[in-house]
Design a protein around this nucleic acid. Structure first.
Lengths: 147, 147
DNA sequence: ATGAAAACTATTATTTTAGTAGAATAATAA
DNA sequence: TTATTATTCTACTAAAATAATAGTTTTCAT
């Protein structure tokens, strides 16, 4: 049940963009620098976020990335979904037809419960909440973050 | 956030043993057969379950495996933990010291919330609950299960 | 026009996952 | 006691996913 670096870096990047939302777009390079992450790798992740309509870009000299919507209108569910594909721990949750025993399988119910519990957390939080939390916590220095 | 086959097969095996609890030990081969899973692979998983003290074995002709405790005394948390190592989506949840910014990181709080929500589901369920669910659902034919 | 940035495409090393194979060991029952 | 049948242990491996890197192409504000 681990989140891959896609999910981790991606969420951190989105929080970073939410924190800097009022200051206009950030260069990919700047975001990667603040996160202490390879900008070439973040390039891939931000493409997924763009495809999902969560970030906008300005593609030219002095361009960069900015959230496509106000932080309060972006829920964590959308972010994780864009990056990891699905929140379900097992495929049969999203698509019960792949297993013709799903309706008589006790384990299936458990997988559904697990997904629902995670979803309810992610659905209850917006990027605005995350940005505020981050600001309350004060001087976060991401360049010293090891994860 | 996918559960690997370790978690999936292992939980299904434990439910299977809970359903057959009153009938005494089952052969590894029988469990694997009912789950439609490689018995050689299940061998590895059941070793983890044994190490965690969740199953007992009888090692001889007509031996087999049986739950080490009554199904009502085994929570799903223990099973997933034995099989997957940890329930935390990110390492810094279980061990905040690996990241010296964990206490000022908004993402960290999110990872904690995610873990807690899954844990509360798994902690609220016992194998007895799962076995009963399975019995209520009726004639489950695991040999037709594709997941 | 041009320069700085995003965007795209391809490749790769590493790690994890999911399994297989076979020999060693244990305990019961004949 | 010995044969039988099962678990247990150790080693190996193929395939997939992960986590990047590299280089080229496209875009557009200035």
């Amino acid at each position: 049940m681990r989140l891959s670096t896609r999910g981790r870096y991606g969420v951190r990047a989105m929080i970073d963009m939410a924190v800097h939302y009022t200051q206009g777009p950030s260069l990919l390079r700047e975001i990667a620098e603040r996160l202490q992450v390879s900008s070439k790798y973040l390039d891939h992740l931000i493409t997924s976020l763009k495809t999902a309509g969560l970030v906008r870009n300005i593609r030219c000299a002095h361009g960069g990335y900015i959230l496509a919507k106000h932080p309060k209108d972006i829920r964590l569910t959308e972010i994780i979904q864009a990056l990891e594909g699905s929140i379900a721990p097992v495929d049969c949750v999203d698509d019960p037809q792949i297993c013709n025993q799903a309706d008589v399988c006790a384990a299936h119910d458990l997988w559904v419960q697990m997904k629902d519990s995670i979803c309810s957390v992610l659905e209850s939080l917006t990027l605005a909440d995350m940005a505020q939390r981050q600001k309350e916590k004060g001087d976060y220095n991401p360049s010293m973050c090891g994860v």
